[in-house]
Amino acid sequence: MEPLLAIAFGVILAASAYLILSRNVLRMVLGLILLGNAANLSIFLSGRLVGPTPPIVAAGIDALVAGAANPLPQALILTAIVIGFAFVSFVLVLVHRAYGALGTLDTEAMREAEPAHEPPQPTPVTSPAPRKEAA
């Protein structure tokens, strides 16, 4: 099972890298979603796939039974999923606004903040400004 999940992690990571490198913002967001899923899968895998038994300590026992699942990765992934969900929602709204405001989804065409043509340079200051003589 582990090798299979490891390969799946690699494939998802590769697909997300491919999508993030796209110039289309929407594909970039899809890439981000995949990247988040790859991260969650890697944490799940790091916690080892021990067994299907729920990690609950029954009454009267001090420790988990052998073969119980590792609860820590589940807690980490749950946190990461919630955070990732919030971010993806935010970025999607941002993309929607960007499409409305800028009229494009092509990153090369989004040059509002960094215009391709900078404003003209000021004339060089050659010497200190001459003092205006008081009349």
Partner: peptide, 26 residues
């Protein structure tokens, strides 16, 4: 909006790489 989009996407990639690193270290 233009600046924020670039800021958001690049920083999200960064934190997700961090998360993968944390997972591996664990």
């Amino acid at each position: 909006i233009d600046g924020a989009l670039k800021y958001a996407v690049l920083n999200l990639v960064g934190t997700t790489v961090f998360l993968i690193g944390v997972g591996f270290l664990y």
